[in-house]
Design a protein around this nucleic acid. Structure first.
Lengths: 197, 197
DNA sequence: TTGACATGCGAACGATCGGTCTCTATAATA
DNA sequence: TATTATAGAGACCGATCGTTCGCATGTCAA
């Protein structure tokens, strides 16, 4: 019961932080959204900042679990079409999962104010996807699916445009389907250029 | 004199907004940074929100002047090396110009809260550079400098990674020189792939 | 010289902020 | 049943928020 309330608080706080930022969110509205008195909030967190820090802890831990460990690396596709499919599966998930969307949004808002948010933002928006795809491309090159090249540069050239469009979906969710099509078009263009026929 | 004060206010407000956001900035600190009483601020702007709206007006107008009109399109380079040089000249400017840096930062912070900021953010972070480079690439294809392809996709594939690294410089300015080198490496890799020998 | 206007200041306003206090309801333990 | 711990409620606190007020100063046209 207690644990449940704490989770509800974190969830709702993330919603509000991702819309209006930390400074733009006040605990009265947060308490109202949770249908509880302000003071009840303080049974579970000692301060507004503690909520924020706990959220950041969670985001960092989640990212580490999901993208940091070697055993979560995506498998090397066995065809060019497999790369497109794997990409679209990942992207489709990441642009529709509410929690991840809110995480990216709050990182975009707080990245210049909070050092830990800054670090995590760099991973989410730039280095994360690249590091994930580098071994994938390396494997595909070894299997003669992609032309031999620097896999790091290739991974960057592949993931950065996709990352831009994911971020675009956060900003304009109505155009998500449009962006997904653009990502697929880009992915197919990519394999047409770099793929070995 | 009056005009001067107004400009000083806008300048300093942009500095603070780009660091802590609109909600995270208070009028007292702003007045202190300007060495004037809070009430004096209200001689020039009727409210905090008016400062924000004026700033947004300026940003939108500046962007329209600089990137919106057809006569500000960059010239089509007459060599592949010319493309790299033009790119590096533009990027070097945009990652060192304080006002543009602050504009991008404040847009990143406020993009989910303010509709006009959202629109301008999409231009800054995604569509702007792509639209700018599309005719450039089209011209280079017609001049047989680049292999024939869809110039829009190519422009997107070229500018999105660069845009990501520009954004990275805003977040971690200490690593700007590093990022610039990466952009040049990427640009050269790009012409190695798409350039006509 | 006077009157009007623009610009600046410190003090203070009401509203709202994050946070605390005291009290009650509940549910589990002994 | 008595006791204790937990979670909730509303009133309330001091601090800070954006904003306004009254007044002083400087400038310039009449």
């Amino acid at each position: 019961m207690a644990k449940d309330t704490k989770e509800r608080i974190l969830r709702t706080a993330l919603e509000m932080f991702s819309q209006n930022g930390y400074a733009g969110t006040n605990i009265r509205e947060l308490a109202e959204a949770l249908n509880m008195g302000k003071s009840s909030l303080y049974r579970h967190f000692e301060s507004k900042e503690a909520i924020w820090n706990t959220l950041l802890d969670r985001m960092i831990a989640y990212y580490g679990d999901r993208f940091g460990s070697a055993d979560h690396l995506p498998p090397v596709p066995d065809s060019l079409e497999g790369l497109v499919e794997m990409t679209m599966r990942m992207v489709d998930f990441t642009v529709h999962d509410e929690k991840i969307i809110m995480t990216r949004k709050v990182l975009a808002i707080e990245q210049f104010r909070d050092d830990r948010a800054r670090d995590l933002a760099s991973k989410h928006f730039l280095t994360g996807l690249t590091q994930m795809f580098t071994p994938v491309f390396q494997g595909m090159m070894e299997n003669d699916l992609l032309r031999r090249d620097d896999p790091k540069i290739l991974a960057f050239a592949y993931t950065a445009p996709i990352s831009s469009l994911i971020h675009f979906c956060d900003r304009e969710p109505d155009k998500t389907e449009d962006a997904l099509r653009k990502i697929e078009t880009f992915s197919r263009h990519f394999i047409a250029i770099y793929g070995v026929k």
